[in-house]
């Protein structure tokens, strides 16, 4: 859908046109669902969260500012929603604590980059490895590479410090590499 058309749908949606919300749903459901799926892990939870995001859209869209591209805004609303959900699951404590920023200095040239593994393993493996990550790694990684958020934005969403986010993302990537390397060695 081109910009102008999206604009039109958005302005109708802001005027409470029910059909416009239907169109937004058709357009963005896959992306929103994908994000929920990665953040929440379980398919059913992701379905629920997706419908909640869209059910609340008539209200939340009033807070939408045109300065931000709509998809980006919608994804950030979605990730907020999912993180709320996760917190409600009371995994909060386990989620993002105990990841001290100091313990970071790692030897250079340590793990083999993902790229080399990927040529052998295929993207499906990577996906599985991501899905298998603990939440504390999976969520920042998803926000970074799926929602395309900056470290600062992620830090704000997850109430973490910026160095903490950097570490979590770094560790997440390391773990994915390790999982893939392990799978390759085991195969």
């Amino acid at each position: 859908m081109d910009e102008a058309k999206l604009e039109m749908v958005l302005s109708r949606a802001m005027n409470d046109d029910a059909e416009a919300f239907g169109e937004l749903y058709q357009l963005f459901r896959p992306r929103v669902f994908g994000l929920c799926r990665h953040l929440l892990g379980r398919h059913e939870d992701a379905e629920d969260a997706t419908s909640e995001v869209f059910a609340r859209l008539p209200n939340s869209i009033k807070r939408y500012e045109k300065s931000l591209p709509f998809p980006r805004w919608l994804l950030s609303v979605t990730s907020h929603h999912c993180v709320d959900r996760l917190r409600r699951r009371q995994l909060e404590q386990r989620l993002f604590e105990a990841e001290p920023a100091e313990a970071l200095q790692l030897p250079v040239h340590q793990a083999s980059p993902l790229q080399q593994v990927i040529s052998d393993e295929g993207r499906d493996r990577v996906r599985k490895a991501i899905d298998a990550l603990p939440e504390q790694y999976r969520i920042p990684l998803t926000l970074r590479y799926y929602s395309d958020l900056s470290y600062d934005e992620i830090a704000e969403q997850l109430s973490l410090s910026r160095p903490n986010v950097a570490t979590l993302i770094f560790r997440a990537k390391q773990q994915v590499r390790r999982a893939l390397a392990g799978a390759a060695a085991g195969a």
Partner: peptide, 12 residues
């Protein structure tokens, strides 16, 4: 990074 972004997009 490019691969990660791509995998996420494919997943969607």
């Amino acid at each position: 990074n490019r691969i990660l972004a791509e995998v996420f997009r494919l997943t969607e």
